[in-house]
Simulated assay, not measured.
Amino acid sequence: MITVVETVQIAHPAEGVFAFIAEPTNRPRWDETVVSEELTSDPPLRAGSTLRSQLRAMGREVEFHWRVTAYEPPRLMSFVSTEGPLETSLVLQLAASEQTTLLTATIEATPSGMMRLFEPVIGEGVRNNLATGLERMKALLEA
């Protein structure tokens, strides 16, 4: 199993950070592996909602389907994959203090079959992408 935890301090209120990450069309703006993301259930986004993401990973395009497992503005949002090349979960936790937000993102992924041989490489790619994406999000929200 791959577990990646990254944090970023954003000089922006938690409500604004949460609203930004809760809008699926914003994901390609901060996560360079995401080509598109869309809500596939009725709006608004909430626990139980479903999404579809088109990603570019390891030189190819893959599709993930997600279910929102927790939606607690402005402090917690989590997702699990329901379809895709590997079982994945994403938890986004926000902690506010005055006008800043500490965002902690945790990704857990379980490669299977031949992908298990590449677990260290996959894990490092996930870590690099997440760290880069959180810094990009920070820059967008602080601009």
Rank of each mutant, 00 (worst) to 15 (best):
M1L: 09
T3V: 12
T3W: 02
T3E: 09
V4K: 13
V8H: 02
Q9F: 07
A11L: 12
A11W: 01
H12K: 15
H12S: 15
P13Y: 03
E15K: 15
E15F: 07
G16E: 11
V17W: 06
F18S: 04
A19S: 15
F20D: 05
I21S: 02
I21R: 02
A22Y: 06
T25Y: 01
T25R: 13
N26M: 06
P28A: 02
P28E: 00
R29I: 04
W30A: 04
W30D: 02
W30G: 09
W30C: 06
T33R: 15
V35A: 01
S36Q: 12
S36G: 11
S36P: 10
E38L: 13
E38F: 04
L39C: 03
L39P: 05
L39R: 11
L39W: 09
S41E: 02
D42S: 14
P43A: 03
P44D: 03
L45G: 06
L45D: 01
A47G: 11
G48W: 13
S49I: 05
T50M: 09
L51C: 04
R52G: 00
S53K: 05
Q54W: 11
L55N: 08
L55S: 01
R56S: 13
A57L: 14
A57P: 00
M58Q: 10
M58C: 02
G59N: 06
G59I: 11
E61P: 01
E61N: 11
F64L: 13
H65G: 08
W66M: 05
W66Y: 14
W66L: 08
R67A: 10
V68G: 01
A70E: 12
Y71G: 05
E72Y: 10
L76C: 08
L76D: 02
M77A: 14
M77D: 00
S78V: 13
S78I: 07
F79T: 08
V80D: 05
S81T: 15
S81D: 07
S81K: 06
T82Q: 00
T82P: 00
T82H: 00
E83F: 07
E87P: 00
E87N: 07
E87F: 04
E87M: 11
T88D: 00
T88P: 00
S89N: 07
S89K: 09
V91M: 06
L92A: 07
Q93V: 13
L94I: 13
A95P: 03
A95W: 03
A95K: 09
E98D: 10
T101Q: 03
T101V: 10
L102V: 12
T104M: 08
A105F: 12
A105P: 11
T106K: 10
I107L: 07
A109Y: 10
A109S: 12
A109L: 07
T110G: 00
P111Q: 12
S112L: 12
S112I: 14
M114N: 08
M114D: 08
M114A: 14
M114H: 09
M115K: 10
R116W: 06
E119S: 14
P120T: 15
P120F: 14
P120Y: 13
V121L: 13
V121C: 00
I122W: 04
G123P: 00
V126Y: 04
V126M: 08
R127M: 06
N129C: 03
T132Q: 11
E135L: 14
R136A: 12
M137G: 06
M137W: 04
K138R: 14
K138G: 08
A139G: 07
L141W: 08
A143W: 01
A143C: 05
